[in-house]
């Protein structure tokens, strides 16, 4: 009797044989003890190796790598295109010097035209006062879209950075947008901290929708604990809807900083005393915290909140 080769038996164990062949092999296994024993042995292997393959991901490491990734992406976004690189590339051959001279002239022309035609047209918001600091325009991320240097023509794209000062109330929509963006993007933690403080000082409920997303993002992902702390304070003052609740629960569950976890559980305790309907996710997190948290105060608070919610 011709035996089934091992690779076919392996594919059968994976259930990856074509139907027709599968039937034929299964038929053979019924009558061949040797192949059947081989097949049985193959079936045992996955069960044995599974426990050794499974790696429990450390939550602290996961939190850390996520924060580092988000910080790196923020940095990337801010990374500016180096004009020096363009100059270096132009220095490769003598004929490029002429081309470069044309390019510089074109850039200067475009800057002058855009400065006078666009800069003056920035519209002010109803409650804010915009003031541009003229003469401090900076260009970055310069790209050559089309360049026909022999005809002396170039088509460029670039980012124009103009210093602007803006004065107004925090409930002004333009200021709100800038603050929210600053909280998400600004590299300087001091600025992000000031931004959260400005947001936290705003007492107009209508503003909460604009700021909520930025605050949730900051409380969960900002790599500076001071910013996360301020964001948590501001967030707990907002109407406590499902999104805010989920963000605070996330902090309690994942933040490495025990001070922030304490703030989160205090916030949850205050809010859930007002609102008696606790969600099952919160119950689960509290049960886990009651047993596993490294901070004994959090364990105690989790236990007492859980008792309140379940009573």
């Amino acid at each position: 009797m011709e035996h089934i080769d091992k690779s076919t038996l392996l594919l059968l164990s994976y259930d990856e044989l074509p139907q027709s062949e599968k039937k034929k092999v299964e038929q053979h296994l019924l009558s061949c003890e040797q192949c059947n024993a081989e097949y049985e042995e193959l079936l045992k292997l996955p069960q044995m190796v599974k426990s050794g393959l499974t790696v429990d991901v450390d939550e602290d490491t996961l939190f850390e790598v996520r924060q580092e990734l988000l910080a790196e992406i923020r940095n990337m976004k801010r990374k500016k295109f180096s004009l020096q690189k363009i100059m270096d590339s132009f220095s490769l051959s003598p004929k490029w010097h002429v081309a470069f001279a044309y390019s510089v002239a074109a850039v200067a022309l475009i800057v002058t035209v855009t400065h006078f035609s666009f800069l003056k047209n920035v519209s002010n918001g109803p409650g804010s006062e915009v003031q541009e600091n003229s003469g401090e325009v900076q260009l970055s991320n310069l790209r050559f879209i089309n360049s026909n240097f022999e005809n002396g023509e170039v088509e460029l794209a670039f980012d124009r950075i103009t210093p602007v000062s803006l004065k107004g109330k925090v409930d002004d929509s333009q200021i709100q947008k800038i603050l929210a963006k600053s909280l998400l993007d600004n590299e300087n933690p001091g600025i992000r901290l000031k931004t959260v403080s400005a947001i936290a000082a705003e007492k107009n409920d209508k503003s909460s929708g604009v700021f909520k997303g930025a605050l949730i993002n900051a409380v969960k992902y900002d790599n500076n604990p001071g910013v996360r702390k301020e964001a948590m304070t501001a967030l707990c003052r907002l109407p406590f809807d499902d999104q805010v609740n989920a963000a605070v629960v996330y902090v309690l569950q994942n933040d490495k900083n025990s001070g922030l976890r304490i703030m989160a559980i205090n916030c949850l305790s205050d809010k859930n005393e007002q609102n008696q309907s606790a969600n099952p996710e919160l119950i689960n997190v509290l049960k886990k915290k009651m047993q596993d948290d490294s901070n004994s105060y959090i364990k105690l608070r989790a236990k007492s909140l859980l008792t309140k919610l379940e009573s």
Partner: peptide, 12 residues
Amino acid sequence: SAEKSAYVRNAV
């Protein structure tokens, strides 16, 4: 069980 897991991991 831990010993088994470590052994399998090393084998893999």
